[in-house]
């Protein structure tokens, strides 16, 4: 592997200074499960690696005032095991549940998953559906970026020079929401999704859809909300038929590509097929959540 210098700064300020000093030749190291591979493959060739592992606070999860804040260095394994996330943000638990292996989840972080901006990132669609905001710190101080503005395309984000993702803020879901993420992949484990489908449903007492969110990954160049499908469902009774139609509308909003992994036609068909399924699971979870409450 290429030689580089490794740093373990103990504050964000120090890390930002290192990034500023070394410019393009520096990269941030979170869990490293993507970056180390990319360095080995010579897709990336940094001279300086700035590890975030000693910076206090980045590995913390905090739930207060109904808002969840996940530090950038929180591992997928920590999220997987967090009862609170399983209960309240089921779709995020779904996403980390089957991401890579235990070995990968033990070190790979949610911040890394997002900042790497791979179209296949499992947490992307759920975070888009959740309307997450990314808290970023840089030379000019702190700013917050809505997640759908953060992704700029495969491997590209809105992060500027010297900026570091500190945490991900997830607003509370409305009372009685149910959610689900379906990772459609060939294998049951150790696979990238061919398609990622995140759905959040908020029904009213008569099971009419008060609010629906549908976020898709690998259905276009970057994760997005299927807004027309969402609008179609909102205000309608939550029937299978309605969701089937919503699925078809979402197909129309998508622009998946073909590769050796699968065809665009199959991806399109699966968008139409899996959105109703994700909705059905979400709905079950609504009921379960109510029973619990």
């Amino acid at each position: 592997m290429r030689r580089f210098t490794y740093y373990e700064p103990e504050s964000l300020k120090e890390a930002i200074a290192l990034l500023e000093k070394n410019g393009e030749t520096a990269r941030l190291l979170a869990g490293g499960t993507d970056l180390i591979v990319e360095i080995k493959q010579e897709k990336k060739s940094p001279d300086h690696l700035v590890s975030l592992r000693r910076i206090p606070g980045l590995q913390e999860m905090d739930f207060s005032d109904g808002e969840l804040c996940i530090g950038a260095m929180v591992t997928h394994r920590m999220i997987e095991k967090a009862e609170l996330i399983r209960d309240k943000y089921s779709l995020l638990a779904d996403a980390v549940d089957n991401l890579g292996s235990v070995q990968v989840r033990n070190v790979a972080t949610i911040g890394g998953n997002i900042c790497n901006a791979a179209p296949s990132a499992d947490t992307a669609a759920p975070l888009v559906a959740l309307g997450a905001r990314l808290v970023v710190e840089g030379p000019a101080g702190e700013r917050q970026i809505p997640i759908d503005e953060f992704f700029k395309g495969p491997g590209k984000t809105d992060l500027g020079a010297g900026e570091i993702l500190r945490c991900i803020r997830i607003p509370a879901l409305p009372q009685g929401a149910g959610s689900c993420y379906i990772k459609h992949a060939r294998r049951k484990a150790m696979d990238l999704p061919l398609l990622g489908i995140a759905v959040i449903i908020v029904p009213d007492a008569n099971m009419v859809c008060r609010e629906a969110r549908i976020a898709l990954s690998l259905a276009g160049p970057k994760p997005f909300r299927a807004e027309q499908a969402e609008a179609f469902v909102t205000g309608k009774p939550l029937s299978e038929e309605v969701w089937k139609q919503a699925g078809e509308i979402a197909v129309g909003e998508s622009n998946p590509r073909s590769s050796f992994r699968t065809t665009a036609a199959y991806r399109r068909k699966m968008i139409g097929t899996l959105i109703p399924r994700a909705a059905a699971v979400s709905l079950q979870r609504v009921n379960r959540a109510w029973m619990k409450g």
């Binding site: 490794y6 190291l29 490293g32 499960t33 180390i36 591979v37 690696l49 394994r77 292996s101 235990v102 070995q103 990968v104 033990n106 070190v107």
Partner: peptide, 9 residues
């Protein structure tokens, strides 16, 4: 915790 030692520095 189990890790892939090939990816850890």
């Amino acid at each position: 915790k189990a890790v892939n030692s090939c990816l850890m520095l």
